[in-house]
Amino acid sequence: MTTTTAKETSELFTPEIRAEIDRWIAKYPAEWKQSAVMGALMIVQESNGGWLTTELMDQVAAYLDMPPIAVYEVATFYSMFELKPVGRNKICVCTNVSCMTNKSDLIVEHLEKKLGIGFGEVTEDGRFSLKEVECLGACGGAPMMQIGKQYYENLTPEIVDAILEGLE
């Protein structure tokens, strides 16, 4: 038997998540629910181990009354949305000018060697992934990186080691 009714929402789209999205929706005019799309995508991305599936994007689209393609456009435009699995700890290393001139290449090299992965890759145990990012607005602490929501500045290979050790 075929069913053409609205798609069942997945387990990931929980009442808690909906409540969180509702908090974003409440910030905007009633007819502009779609303003909450970036907030909503961040929430579902976080609940899904840091990346977005098409199914999740479709559910956000349905929840915000948006055409799915409009959600795909947003999800593929902003660099913080991930469309492939990432590590439990997504290490974002800035390599822009101020960091570069403060030897961010050594940090990158150190990370690559230590983790055995390059940019865009995930360690086999899923613990880390590595991403090159553009200026994160912390040039005073160059070289710097972001893991999760946390900024780490004035990095040296030794500091990096200590940081990674403390992460699950």
Partner: peptide
């Protein structure tokens, strides 16, 4: 009146299509 095609990605990597 239905958005089926879009422009996904950005910059030089922007692609016109249905994404899926």
């Amino acid at each position: 009146g239905i958005r089926e095609m879009g422009a996904t990605g950005r910059g030089e990597h922007m692609v016109i299509g249905t994404y899926i």
